[in-house]
Design a protein around this nucleic acid. Sequence first.
DNA 1: ATTTAAATACCAACTTATTGGTATTGTGTA
DNA 2: TACACAATACCAATAAGTTGGTATTTAAAT
Lengths: 210, 210
Amino acid sequence: MIANQNYNIAIADDHKLILAGIRNIVLDNQLGTVVGDASNGFQLLQLLQHKKVHLAIIDVNMPEMNGVQTAKKIVELYPDVAILILSQYENIELIKELKIIGVKGYLSKSFESDQLIEGIKTIKENCNYFPLLDREHITFKKDKTQLTTRELEILSLIAKGKTSKEISCQLFLSQYTVETHRKNCMRKLEVNSTIQLINVAKDKGYILYE
Amino acid sequence: MIANQNYNIAIADDHKLILAGIRNIVLDNQLGTVVGDASNGFQLLQLLQHKKVHLAIIDVNMPEMNGVQTAKKIVELYPDVAILILSQYENIELIKELKIIGVKGYLSKSFESDQLIEGIKTIKENCNYFPLLDREHITFKKDKTQLTTRELEILSLIAKGKTSKEISCQLFLSQYTVETHRKNCMRKLEVNSTIQLINVAKDKGYILYE
DNA sequence: ATTTAAATACCAACTTATTGGTATTGTGTA
DNA sequence: TACACAATACCAATAAGTTGGTATTTAAAT
């Protein structure tokens, strides 16, 4: 067991106020030492090169390099660093994906700071912290609106403002294929326009950065 | 001059972590007493009915009732409450509008927490705090990409996923008129699809809540 | 009094998106 | 092996969005 003052925490979030907020919560509750912060994944990875970090708290919605990409890289390069993911949304599929990647915890931002404290303490004791998954375990239901990998890929390109034609060129696909995927996404999310598609997809956390 | 411990502050933000963050900054720097917080404008207005508040710190991007709408209501109903607006973006036109409405300060979230502290201190001394406007004063430039009130109104409806036809019905306009406004928005923001229009408009802070 | 800008409205040609189908291939699983 | 599903591709009809114009009215500013 590492003493609290020797438990090194790094934070990545593109909102400075949230960085400061987390930093304060960590300090006030003596959960560890914040050895640095970052506004995106690249900065966090740079930080990890120079400093010994036990826990990385990462926002999933960051520009440049989002939380999922960053988490994958960290697990690959620094398997000893525990990862706690913060997100605005409660997307069960995303949480499951992150758990498989190897992150230690997932917290929705709509939760109180108490949960952050609990999450850090739990991870510090080398346990996983996925309160949303546990809840889901009780009220288990097969989600029909799951999007496939390809659908998510195309969705993120649509969200960036690309047309079906442009996407088909970029992915070396037929325009028809892209339109089929688009259509299936719309059916699954029960919408009937591109804007609604993107709005709902963001709401449900299928698109990580706008 | 009100003593710090008697300076009552209310905070409105839909992110609990930011609420906690601001609360901590206020406490740690002994800037006042946080007498309550809210997740949207309605909650904040309810709070003001029951508690004496000297300063309301309001996030501009909130669901249900956004920061601008909330600020207007507060100025109307509680003209003695000072307002500090927080935003993710640096939209000079928005800041000017807020200043005219009567808010006392505007802070971009990309700024450090030092600025929040400075902002609260400045407003407490009954001065305005608009660091972005002051900067703008030096590098003054007439912005050609200003959107009109009507354009902003239509833009926000487009962002909600409504079609031109639906918008024309809702606003009792010809569909042609809506399409003209849409076209002019797209020209001004230099885009050529709805999704790009909404993306850029959000980036520039023309759309306050998604 | 003249100019400028916002808001309104219309037309036509063209491009994309949307809806509702069908169909094939490969992969992994019951 | 048979089944389910993801990924691919195609067709056709309809709806919506995009582009490039013109034009009128009203209100505010010079």
